[in-house]
């Protein structure tokens, strides 16, 4: 970061970046724990995740307030301005990631009602691993300002979408096999969707980081690959 005559200004910018990193760490942890709670039917862990969401909400509000204050007081330009706008955007994305994690945690009890095949949970776990890798990579890029891996993040989002579509189909099959599975599978379906959305937020953050560092936007949005809207159950 370039330094300013006013050291306090530097401090303020650094505060924003540190706060974003903290939010990122919390969001990653929430998703990790929510998925672990889901896979192991751990209600206590799920409750912790639900409680922890407050931290992210507060952090987002704090970053917003601080950012507005800096803009009003310092009238930032160029990289500084992008830094501040970027912080506002990323904190909004991270807050959503936290909400999605919380939503998964809330479904733990309902999804664990009936015994589901381990294979389903492994699918969800693998999906979550992809999304978490995405999140980690973009947050690492934010911390190091190294944008060389940003493009890869967007590419890998396709992998998440493909896996999500496959899980979607599998869940439908289970529901058809035995209607008693419907409650749990519907909840798992939402969980999978939430994880897929986390990947989308990671992609948003990737775009924001690219914008902060270079001042230019990444090329327009790639076509969506989530094809679950086309999935139907044949012969049903």
């Amino acid at each position: 970061m370039p330094s300013h005559t006013l050291q306090a200004y530097d401090e303020e910018l650094k505060f924003l970046a540190t706060r974003i990193a903290q939010m990122g760490g919390h969001a990653e942890r929430m998703v990790e724990e929510a998925v672990a709670a889901l896979v192991n039917s751990n209600d206590a862990l799920a409750q912790t995740v639900i409680r922890n969401d407050r931290v992210l909400d507060e952090a987002e509000r704090e970053i917003d307030d601080k950012a507005v204050l800096i803009i009003a007081r310092r009238q930032p330009m160029a990289i500084d301005l992008r830094e501040i706008i970027g912080a506002i955007r990323i904190s909004a994305d991270l807050e959503r990631v936290g909400d999605l994690g919380k939503n998964i945690a809330k479904r733990v009890a309902a999804a664990g009602q009936t015994q589901q095949p381990a294979k389903l949970f492994r699918g969800i776990e693998a999906l979550a691993e992809l999304a978490l890798t995405q999140l980690k990579d973009v947050l690492d890029a934010y911390g190091s300002r190294a944008i060389d891996r940003i493009a890869a993040v967007r590419d890998r989002d396709e992998e998440i979408d493909a896996k999500y579509t496959s899980l979607f189909r599998e869940l439908l099959t289970y529901m058809m096999e035995d209607p008693r599975n419907i409650t749990a599978c519907t909840h798992l379906l939402f969980c999978a969707k939430n994880i897929e959305r986390i990947g989308d937020h990671a992609t948003n953050i990737a775009e924001t980081v690219h914008y902060i560092v270079t001042g230019s936007q990444l090329p327009a949005e790639r076509p969506k690959e989530d094809e679950s809207h086309t999935v139907v159950v044949a012969g049903g």
Binding site: A17, A21, G25, E28, R29, L139, Y142, G143, S144, R145
Partner: peptide
């Protein structure tokens, strides 16, 4: 942990709540 940029904040590198 991958490359470190000298002078960058260590708090940006280690985000986990307990590290923070």
């Amino acid at each position: 942990f991958g490359a470190f940029r000298l002078g960058s904040s260590v708090q940006l590198k280690f985000r986990a709540p307990e590290m923070q």
